[in-house]
């Protein structure tokens, strides 16, 4: 049954129609045109579709669209600060932590969820936070360094 849902999307109250068979990922990409959130595996293994739901990183492929009714969602499109890149995005660029970039939005969201809760994470905590994000070209070292750098205020030049 088509149903209207209302939720906070990147800080803005949003109303939209959804169908029961829609995943949050379909809602974002197909209905709302927010294609920054990627579909990789579709089974919760790769993390390319990571978004932040009520402060927690989740796979948008594993959440029914109708489950976000009344809740607060942040996607990669919602993290710009005053028209400039989020410090995590900036750090990823400076640390050469991107090649094809397909995993990057998911990694950014996982890193953001981590830093929002824990502004000074250990290397191990960063590794755990991004264990659900698969990157097949760059590897993880530069990503970890970038997140460490972003946590420290993003001053390191490489």
């Amino acid at each position: 049954m088509m149903k209207e849902i209302e939720f906070t999307l990147n800080g803005t109250r949003t109303r939209t129609e959804t169908q029961p068979g829609e995943r949050l990922l379909d809602l974002l990409r197909e209905r709302l045109g927010l294609t920054g959130t990627k579909e990789g595996c579709g089974i919760g293994s790769c993390g390319a579709c990571t978004v932040i739901l009520d402060g927690k990183a989740v796979n948008a492929c594993l959440v029914p669209a109708q489950a976000v009714d009344g809740r607060e969602l942040v996607t990669i499109e919602g993290i710009m600060q005053n028209e400039s890149l989020h410090p995590i995005q900036d750090a990823l660029i400076r640390h050469h932590a991107i090649q094809c970039g397909f995993c990057t939005p998911g990694l950014v969201m996982s890193a953001k969820a981590l830093l929002d809760e824990n502004p000074d994470p250990s290397r191990g905590e960063i590794q755990r936070a991004i264990a659900g994000n698969l990157c097949r070209c760059t590897g993880y070292e530069q990503v970890i360094e970038a997140i460490q750098d972003a946590a420290k205020g993003g001053k390191t030049q490489c």
Binding site: G44, G47, T50, A57, V63, A113, L114, A131, G132, N133
Partner: peptide, 9 residues
């Protein structure tokens, strides 16, 4: 179990 994203749900 799984990843952070999985354990969050």
């Amino acid at each position: 179990v799984g990843s952070t994203q999985i354990r969050n749900r």
